[in-house]
C-alpha cells in the first residue's frame, strides 16, 4: 500500500540547490581572500596571556637559588581547596624553611590566594597552561619542581590598569 505523500508544488527558484551552493561557495571564497584569521598555529604560534592569568604554581628563589619560602604557613591556611601541604623545619643556619612543600595542582582551584597572602613573595601562580603529565602523581608538585619552573608568573592585577577600571 502506497503511502500518500503529498507533494507540494513549489517554484523551481525556491527549491533549487544551485542558489544555496553558490551562497555557500561565496562565503568560502570570501574567507579565502579575506585575511581575517581566527585559527592560531599552535604550537608554532602562541596567544599572549593576560598578565593576570592564574595557572600552575612556581616558587621564586633568592639569589643563591634557595626557595624564598620561610614556611610561615599562611598559604595552607588561606587555601580554600586545601591543596598545599607544608611541613616547616630548620636548615643548617637555623633558618626556618619548608621541609615539605607540595601543591596538588588537581585539587587547586587557581584562585591565587596563596600568591596574595605570601609575605615573602615566594609562591606564585604562573602564566602557564601547558600541564600534561604521564601520571596523576605528576600533578603533585614538590618544592624542587616548583623551584625549577621558569615560566612567567601572575601579576595579580593589570599593571596598566591596577584598579581594574
Amino acid at each position: 500500500m502506497a503511502i500518500n505523500v503529498k507533494v507540494l508544488a513549489r517554484p523551481v527558484e525556491d527549491v533549487s540547490y544551485v542558489r544555496a551552493t553558490l551562497k555557500g561557495m561565496a562565503l568560502t571564497f570570501r574567507h579565502l581572500v579575506d585575511p581575517h584569521k581566527v585559527t592560531v598555529q599552535y604550537p608554532e604560534q602562541r596567544d599572549e596571556l593576560s598578565p593576570r592569568w592564574r595557572g600552575t604554581h612556581r616558587m621564586l628563589t633568592t639569589e643563591d637559588g634557595k626557595a624564598k619560602c620561610v614556611a610561615c604557613g599562611l598559604c595552607p591556611t588561606v587555601c580554600p581547596a586545601n591543596c598545599i601541604k607544608l611541613v616547616p623545619g630548620e636548615d643548617e643556619q637555623g633558618n626556618r624553611y619548608p621541609l615539605v612543600f607540595e601543591i596538588d595542582e588537581f585539587r587547586c582551584i587557581f584562585c591565587g590566594y596563596c600568591q596574595e597572602v605570601c609575605p615573602e613573595e615566594a609562591i606564585h601562580v604562573g602564566r602557564h597552561y601547558e600541564n600534561s603529565e604521564y601520571s596523576r602523581e605528576g600533578f603533585v608538585y614538590d618544592l624542587e619542581r616548583l623551584v625549577s619552573q621558569t615560566h612567567a608568573v601572575c601579576e595579580m592585577w593589570d599593571p596598566t590598569d591596577p584598579r581594574g577600571e
Partner: peptide, 9 residues
C-alpha cells in the same frame, strides 16, 4: 616547639 607548628593549626 621551635618551627614545629603554627598556633592556628
Amino acid at each position: 616547639f621551635l618551627n614545629k607548628a603554627r598556633s592556628w593549626d
